[in-house]
C-alpha cells in the first residue's frame, strides 16, 4: 500500500525515531501516571510539559471497531480502496487508541474484539510507521 508518509516535527521526532527502530514509545506524564498519544507539547490532563517523558510500551491491543474506506479523499490511497481502517485500543491503557489497516486481514473480514500486536511497515526509505496485525 502506498501510504502517506508522516513527517516528524521537533515534538514528535523521538516518537518516529523509536518507530524507525521498531519500538513503540509513548509520552508518559509522571504527575498523572498516564500515557499520552498522539504526541503533545503538554499533558492533556494536568497541562504540565515538564512532567512529560517517554515510555516504551509492549504494543498489544484489541480491535474495537472498524470501517472500510470505499471512497476516501487521499490521492495516494485511491488504488488501495476498499481497505480496512480499524480502531485499536491499547491493552496497557484502553484510553489510548490507534488507527490500523490490519495488514493480512481481508477487507471486511475484521475480527472485532480480536487481539492485535504492533508491527512496523516501511512507507518510504528509512521511514516506518506503526501498524497492527491481528493475532490468531
Amino acid at each position: 500500500m502506498p501510504k502517506v508518509i508522516p513527517v516528524a516535527d521537533p515534538l514528535s521526532k523521538p516518537f518516529w525515531d523509536a518507530v524507525n527502530q521498531k519500538k513503540l514509545l509513548l509520552q508518559f506524564c509522571s504527575g498523572c501516571r498516564r500515557l499520552q498519544y498522539p504526541i503533545r507539547d503538554r499533558c492533556a490532563d494536568c497541562g504540565s510539559a515538564e512532567k512529560l517523558g517517554w515510555k516504551e510500551v509492549r504494543g498489544r491491543g484489541h480491535i474495537s471497531t472498524y470501517i472500510i474506506i470505499e471512497d476516501g479523499r487521499l490521492d495516494r490511497r485511491m488504488s488501495d480502496q476498499p481497505y480496512n481502517l480499524a480502531l485499536v485500543t491499547m491493552d496497557e491503557d484502553p484510553g489510548i487508541n490507534f488507527y490500523a489497516n490490519l495488514p493480512g486481514t481481508p477487507v471486511d473480514k475484521v475480527p472485532v474484539g480480536a487481539p492485535v500486536e504492533v508491527v512496523f511497515e516501511e512507507v518510504a526509505p528509512g521511514q516506518l510507521i506503526h501498524e497492527w496485525r491481528a493475532v490468531q
Binding site: 513527517v7 514528535s12 498522539p38 479523499r73 487521499l74 490521492d75 495516494r76 481502517l85 488507527y99
Partner: peptide
C-alpha cells in the same frame, strides 16, 4: 475536498497521526 493536502504524499502536523492509515 479533493486536492490540497489530500493530494500530498506527506502528512504534517496533526495529520501525521491519522493520514498514514487513511483518515483524512
Amino acid at each position: 475536498r479533493r486536492g490540497g493536502e489530500n493530494a500530498e504524499d506527506y502528512a504534517k502536523g496533526e495529520r501525521q497521526w491519522t493520514v498514514p492509515w487513511g483518515n483524512h
